[in-house]
Design a protein around this nucleic acid. Structure first.
Lengths: 130, 130
DNA sequence: CTGCAAGCTGGAGTGCACTCCAGCGCAACC
DNA sequence: GGTTGCGCTGGAGTGCACTCCAGCTTGCAG
């Protein structure tokens, strides 16, 4: 059975050692196994769960919600349906984020265009704040 | 000349009163004019600048960078070219955010699909973490 | 004239998500 | 057998962007 040292997990997942320990403390990771001298040894399962965590984190899921999701995972197979609901709700939020951000970006681009228009008529007098 | 009370600005901009005061403290807003008894009276220009602030904030520009941008605005018309550069760099970052987020979302959707596949074969035995 | 809402100030507190630190253990390499 | 490196712990600190608070003044409605 393969076991990963903390250093290897840092390498693989991109999370810092402190972050990994923090995630374990708050219950986002279940207690990580230890070798004879008390050092962490991560399993394949731990690492793949960290992949899920990264995915959720990078799409903006708050830690508290990831912890709730982790609890569902630990509760076993009968929670799969609920997990799908959580993930789909999250996916819809991500979709909303997109729409929102796109709108805001369009506003930004209009402002940029405004500045460029001012630039192209160099000696006008404008209130350049709007 | 129209002047806005703090309450009206809260209404118009969606920023809280505390946030407005905070923005003034840190120099994101220039010192707001006061009436005879010391209460703030915002000008049209203040409000339109707050529109810009909202636009930048909502597209994820950090406060510190907004403050630098505010300083450019205060420095006058000769900084317009530089302002355009700042805004365009920001716009490119927003674009990157999109690409990034879309990628992460695709990963998320693959994970959701995986769960759904598990759901559709109800009595298999799977490691549902990946 | 009495309330109550709105606003003022400086400073402290909050929430999130880490991040850092001191002081320690263990293993291994020269 | 020293020192280098990886890892351990509990707890404190950080950075960001607000948000709240006590204690006060001002504005306006009834």
């Amino acid at each position: 059975m393969v076991a990963y040292t903390p250093g290897q997990v840092v390498e693989e997942t991109g999370f810092s050692l402190d972050t990994l320990r923090y995630y374990e403390r708050i219950g986002l990771l279940e207690p990580i196994g230890r070798n004879a001298s008390g050092q962490r040894r991560f399993t394949e399962g731990d690492v793949s769960w960290l992949g899920m965590v990264r995915c959720l984190r990078d799409t903006g899921m708050p830690i508290a919600e990831m912890v709730r999701f982790a609890e569902l995972v630990r509760a076993g197979d009968q929670t799969i349906r609920e997990r799908v609901e959580v993930l789909e709700a999250h996916d819809r939020r991500v979709e909303e984020q997109f729409a929102d951000l796109r709108e805001k970006q369009e506003a930004l681009q209009r402002k940029i265009q405004y500045y460029k228009d001012v630039l192209s008529i160099p000696d006008g007098v404008y209130d350049a704040q709007g």
